[in-house]
Design a binder for these strands. Sequence first.
DNA 1: ACCTGAACACCGTTCAAGT
DNA 2: ACCTGAACACCGTTCAAGT
Lengths: 220, 220
Amino acid sequence: MSETSTPARGRPPRLDRERTLRTALDLLRQSGLDALTMRRLAEALDVKAGALYRYFATKQDLLTAMAERMMAGVADATAAADDGDWSGQLRTLARALRAALLAHRDGARVFAGTHATGPHTLGIADTLVGVLRGAGFSDEEAARTLFTVANFTVGHTLEEQAALEPADGGADVPALLTEAVAAGTYPHLQAGLSTLSSTDFTALFEFGLGLLVDGLRARR
Amino acid sequence: MSETSTPARGRPPRLDRERTLRTALDLLRQSGLDALTMRRLAEALDVKAGALYRYFATKQDLLTAMAERMMAGVADATAAADDGDWSGQLRTLARALRAALLAHRDGARVFAGTHATGPHTLGIADTLVGVLRGAGFSDEEAARTLFTVANFTVGHTLEEQAALEPADGGADVPALLTEAVAAGTYPHLQAGLSTLSSTDFTALFEFGLGLLVDGLRARR
DNA sequence: ACCTGAACACCGTTCAAGT
DNA sequence: ACCTGAACACCGTTCAAGT
């Protein structure tokens, strides 16, 4: 009885899902999604690329596991908060989801590109639906709200992280927008220019979240 | 004076942005974004891949032009509609945006992965902001609503089109969800299961859009 | 049992050279 | 001026063979 229950015949593995996952998330944080290749990940693990396929059937599988792992902190952050009624709890949940995506470089792109169905992801979903059912919303309204809040949050954070990246293509969006608007063609965009080129994504997220919550309140 | 104003010295080009763009959108419709490679596009145009770079600096450039082209029909579809007050016009705009993304395979993925700032895209944005300003919302509220509606719509359609794709990885999401929920671990998801595994994305979109509109109404 | 070596079938992009 | 040929520096994935 040296350490584990299974006999462990042959050499002990140098690799496992856990170490691979941690290294992949580190590499993501350092280099971004486009630089996260199976070959570079293997190199960081001091192994050849082919070896990764013993633990993850495809790269997509690995990305799904990464997305699920990103959701790990959300439940705790939510439980810790003291947030009153259903609307406060819903806000807390949505903010924690955005924060979890923002906590990893390209987090929203990874999450949007996969379909995580692990315990963390399902736990968050269950909690959110539970908050709404507890507040008297129907099962159908609660389920639809889950999707609406998730889709809005992911859509928002996708934009937010895209705006944060260097945008190596050249001119950034605000600059292009300012230029196009200056020509006088888009009067309404011109009026909202200061907000449109603002980088206060938190205020923007809170605005959208506020609309959803008020819309829900009107339905009770 | 044979045909155009410019002298056209040398052979007439076999390629141009317009034909390349049309062929690229055709290829997208037939094969999806993952199969849209510069090499395959070149083959469809009966040319070698290197030739494409005379018209588009990078693949990202081509994708941005495709995203802009997808927005072409939105303004017309919006103008044709007879939709009453600001809330009806806002709904029409959001529905037309979703329809434009759905009209092309992987449309939302293409749109989300680029930052189109062409006249169609800016025209839609200007119209939406104009509707809200005309209804008495502040410039800031109008601009923030633009982002909220766009982010929600793109986030929703990303999910919708992902659910429509074959999902070659194996079991589909509803199946996985049903299985996980059956274990009894997620009581609230279990209650909403019929809605959660429903494929009525139009109803889902309308629910979210309705929340946003009602939220806006509460702000006037 | 676990990993390497080596290959297969691709990618986006560049650029000298041809026409 | 426009396109080809050929290369550069990569990809994800598979699988016989080694240890």
